[in-house]
Amino acid sequence: MLRCVLAVCAVAAVYGQTDNLVQLATKIGATDLVKVVTQAGLADTLANKGPFTVFAPSNEAFARVPKRIIEELERNKTLLTDLLLYHVTNGKVLSTQLKNGQLAPSLFEKHDLRFNIYNEGKLITAEGSPVALADQQASNGVIHLLNKVIFPIPEGSVVDFVSRDPFVSTLLKAVVAANLVKTLEGGPFTVFAPTNEAFNRLPPGALDKLLANVTALAEVLTYHVVKGTVYAEGLTNGERVATVEGQDLSVRKMGPERVIINNAMVERADISVTNGVIHVINNVLIPPPKK
């Protein structure tokens, strides 16, 4: 059971439980969420039905969403509705009821939310987005304020993602050659996925040699895989993370948006898939020789 050690829990009952979810969201400063909920025609549902648990992006979270995405959401009511439903679950779920790696169905059909608990319970994330203010209880549910807007996960697993994304097609080729497709359908895993350009940076002929040596290739690829789900917020500066290959990766964090794994920069973080999370990196990680 998660202890309520978060600073966010200290103010859990400030507003009491007489306000409905929409009224409470307004009081705690999630006014941009209330605006888009109203635009999507969901305000009446969140005000009068439930109980619901709402993972509510703060105004600052909405401000960080690229303008082109905001414009698309404004044009496409269906897309906006799906996004908002992804932030809501049925029932009243307090932070003390969440477990690391737990999945819960959102109101966006067929898409679950994944929760993680890091730093001895001091950090809770929903799809990698930190909970900034937890357990704000309304008359028809509870709100947890998030630092980031979360987007519905793509359909499928780690392998499905690398099969779809043209920027990691070389990784797919390597996974197939190493006979790791079935393994990466399991999990959950955290995968540091090198781009095609990352593979191109290898010395001349190195990739061909790896593809011809299944054992060596599997060792390199499993050095990119960590058991469990570790989002960028869950990584700490100076940390060492054990890989499936058996040796550790070193983590450097130079700000919330700058994460380095060994000598590789994370270019795209926190890509949720059904069996884990993917971080796209700009270099291939080569395991050191085993003693």
Rank of each mutant, 00 (worst) to 15 (best):
A30E: 05
P289N: 06
E60Q: 09
V277L: 01
K173Y: 04
A269K: 10
E245S: 04
E127H: 08
S157M: 01
N76R: 11
P154D: 04
T78L: 05
V36M: 01
P289F: 05
F52L: 05
P194V: 08
L217N: 05
Q136N: 12
T78D: 15
V230I: 13
T222K: 09
T236H: 02
N20M: 03
R201V: 00
R3A: 11
A218V: 06
A177F: 03
E120W: 07
F52K: 07
P194H: 09
S106G: 10
Q39L: 14
V244P: 12
H87W: 04
V225D: 14
A47D: 11
V5S: 09
N20Y: 03
V131W: 01
K291Q: 10
T53V: 03
P188L: 04
Q136K: 08
I286M: 14
V131P: 00
L285Y: 13
A198F: 11
K182Q: 14
L94E: 01
L107E: 10
L46I: 01
V159F: 10
Q136T: 02
M254W: 05
A13Y: 02
L180H: 08
V259Y: 11
P166L: 00
R3C: 08
R240V: 14
V191L: 11
K122F: 11
R240Y: 14
D135W: 02
E233P: 02
F199T: 02
L285P: 14
V93D: 03
I153M: 09
E71L: 09
G91I: 09
G186A: 13
K209L: 15
N179P: 02
E72V: 00
T215G: 11
T274L: 12
N237F: 01
I124G: 00
A218S: 15
G187A: 11
I143G: 07
T183K: 15
G16A: 06
T45S: 06
E233L: 04
K209Q: 15
M1A: 11
A264G: 12
T45V: 15
P289D: 08
A212F: 07
V259T: 15
F62L: 10
E155V: 08
P130A: 08
T195M: 04
E245Y: 09
G205F: 00
A43I: 01
T45Q: 10
T215L: 10
A30H: 05
V259D: 13
L6K: 03
S95E: 02
Q136H: 06
V175Y: 15
T190D: 14
V168C: 09
V273H: 13
N48E: 09
R64C: 02
A104Y: 09
V230K: 05
V8C: 07
F167D: 03
S106H: 12
L217C: 12
E257Q: 12
P152V: 10
H87L: 01
D44R: 05
Q102V: 02
A7T: 03
F151D: 01
Q39H: 04
P130W: 10
T18Q: 14
T236P: 00
L221E: 07
Q136M: 06
V273K: 13
R68E: 15
A56F: 07
E155I: 04
E219Y: 05
H87C: 05
K99S: 15
G276Y: 15
N116L: 00
L235V: 13
V93T: 12
T96M: 05
T215Q: 14
N140F: 04
N48H: 09
T274K: 07
T229D: 10
G29I: 06
M254A: 03
T222R: 06
L84Q: 04
G234C: 11
